[in-house]
Design a protein around this nucleic acid. Sequence first.
DNA 1: AATGAATGAGTGTTCATTCAT
DNA 2: GATGAATGAACACTCATTCAT
Lengths: 233, 233, 233, 233
Amino acid sequence: MGQPDTMTRILDTAEVLFAERGFAETSLRNITGKAKVNLAAVNYHFGSKKSLIQAVFARYLEPFSERFHAAIDALEADYGEKVIPLEVLLETMARTVLEVPAEKHSLKVFMRLLGLAYSQAQGHLRRYIQDEFGTVFTRFVALVREATPELPDAERFWRLHFVLGTVIFTFSGLDALRDIAEKDYGEHVSVRDLVRRMSPVVVAAMNAPLPEGGLEQAESTSALVSEGKGAVN
Amino acid sequence: MGQPDTMTRILDTAEVLFAERGFAETSLRNITGKAKVNLAAVNYHFGSKKSLIQAVFARYLEPFSERFHAAIDALEADYGEKVIPLEVLLETMARTVLEVPAEKHSLKVFMRLLGLAYSQAQGHLRRYIQDEFGTVFTRFVALVREATPELPDAERFWRLHFVLGTVIFTFSGLDALRDIAEKDYGEHVSVRDLVRRMSPVVVAAMNAPLPEGGLEQAESTSALVSEGKGAVN
Amino acid sequence: MGQPDTMTRILDTAEVLFAERGFAETSLRNITGKAKVNLAAVNYHFGSKKSLIQAVFARYLEPFSERFHAAIDALEADYGEKVIPLEVLLETMARTVLEVPAEKHSLKVFMRLLGLAYSQAQGHLRRYIQDEFGTVFTRFVALVREATPELPDAERFWRLHFVLGTVIFTFSGLDALRDIAEKDYGEHVSVRDLVRRMSPVVVAAMNAPLPEGGLEQAESTSALVSEGKGAVN
Amino acid sequence: MGQPDTMTRILDTAEVLFAERGFAETSLRNITGKAKVNLAAVNYHFGSKKSLIQAVFARYLEPFSERFHAAIDALEADYGEKVIPLEVLLETMARTVLEVPAEKHSLKVFMRLLGLAYSQAQGHLRRYIQDEFGTVFTRFVALVREATPELPDAERFWRLHFVLGTVIFTFSGLDALRDIAEKDYGEHVSVRDLVRRMSPVVVAAMNAPLPEGGLEQAESTSALVSEGKGAVN
DNA sequence: AATGAATGAGTGTTCATTCAT
DNA sequence: GATGAATGAACACTCATTCAT
């Protein structure tokens, strides 16, 4: 079967190291050294470190987008005019998310990369994700909208991101959290366990009652927030 | 009143830059340049960059721990033998979280730092946080346990971290998310608005029904997870 | 007619880029990229960058030498035994210089390359020029010698190079100088204008009176030079 | 007496290497290696290679400007209302040009650097020279103007640059030219000899008759220029 | 005859840290 | 107590050249 070619070796190594350490902390020397390819090969094949980072993402996002579109097509065919229940939508997404990295390396890597893309100052990454992922996500949101007609649009937007935070945080910090859980509760959780645990939580989160008070009364009703004098903005 | 002293100037500048760019992407030159102090001052006052990062955290975590302990003391005094409801516990934590950065700079910075601590390869940071924050968090978890007696311990652990993910993700990516929300829904959300919105979601998440099937049947019952052949570990 | 072949495309592109930026600042990637040929084509067709530089020169110098020989032949035929006046000699050279690049790209390119050959550490270039251009130049100098019998040989040598400096400097820095002239005097000068302007100056320079004092008294008579204590060597 | 400090060592070494090879062909490693200083010292002291190049120039241009101003002051004081003759002006400039490098290292280096600044694509250098040298040069041109009232301004501009070309070309290629002269004419010329030789040539060049034909008849009168069909622009 | 892939040596620059003062 | 100078190691990236096909 032989060695995978240079580009693949670089991508395989890069995604692991990026996930382990972050982008800035991973040097091209780290990557090329571990991948046993020439240092200049990265710039030859990808042009720059920035482009390599994008290429690492592309390997996940492109098949994910494609499959997710297909999965949504299938759902729409199944349900016809009927509303697709929220549970089914989320389940479908989860299944697709899990499928793609399964063929590559690991969910953790994918999530870690997503998390880094949000939390690190990689503007170009966020833009790339928006471009690549935007259309299918918009489609998904439209279906979620039908499944949650009682939610105002803005509310739905925020809840989806609350949930996204849960997913990304959990899976990107998977090792650390798993270590603690194992130490404290003596149980080793698999990704499947976690998804099973996450499922009702996410559904409940999306279906939570609206906050008390209309938006226009925001300031007055919530007891949750003290009046910080300072720079809480 | 004059200038704040060198150490404070360094800390003030560092926390902003760390939050904006991440740890690796922020050089000591960036910090000392912006803070208008000598380059060697960081190593002089803090010993190393690593220690500076910890010092930046300490400024948040120490008062946070202290206040959180105090808030819990107050709650326990109030409720005596009675169980403190989950809503009250979460509300108390939220209030404390918001109070501390309010006196310093911004919630966003604090959350960003927390998020980075989890997502970046800063093992020393995670350890530090555990040390500093562990005891009060344990105390908090014990009260949450009383408030959610139906939850298995492990389940509670994970749900708390699911929720932590929501909070950290939302606030550390605040600017980006706010931009999108403003563009798409034409509304500017304050931190207070967000907390108000997050509140019922978080409560619902904690109170969600248990996943179907016992833990021992994990593999068999969930329809959420496909059987990836690959490296989903 | 179609595209010119690969070698020509490389030469055409290289001469422009060399003239614009210099040799070291022009990479083979620059050239092959702009010429839309394969990167390896330069080494394939020319063997090395050094050889390419020489080839670029050759395209000018060879036809120039040939034509200049021919022009001198014609002059000698015309004047027979009579002395060819200096003006005519210089005019002939100027005409030939201007003719050759006219068929290729531009005078500026030629001069720039000449200037670079002198000012940069391209020993191989200087040697090449000597070889290619030496014989016809010797022939020319012999005629100049007849036209300026009063000049000692060494004096003539230097004056020809003084004049060469004028020509190369002016035309190789043409764009910069033209910009200044246009800004300051509001007139756009063409190459023809410049040659017309240069002509009487060059003739006057060649015909200038000999410096006061014989060569053997060099040290004592000239008031032009102060006694630098230093490394004026 | 001890070693000169790091900055000076870098400047001393850099100017020699730049003059010998050009800017692009001289690496910071060349410089720091020969100067026996740390590689990072260049960026520490000068910020960048570009700035180092400018600093190398500044060491010549600044004292030159200063002295030239002073020399012109002295001339004006001497001559009062009377016109300062062209010879005196040129002589004064020559003396100043020779004085400055004499205290530093060598005229050749200075000229070579000047030539490089014109012939290489160092836009930032040309700008720097313009800034640093512009005012005193303007002053000088004003005096030359009085000394050559018959010359149109544009004509004077060009002739000064013709002459500048002679000077820069001769001195920056000094070694090569001197080698040839020595081989062919068996005489070793000193810089003083060269200046003595150049002097009447330069004066004659400035005083040459105006080109035949007015500017508006440029095209029609000069026999010097053939009509190139091509890109002679 | 021509080229995509690859490479080793080199570039300028930045880094956190150290040290003499 | 504080800092300007310096440093070795590392950085991303570019280079001309080579080579298998």
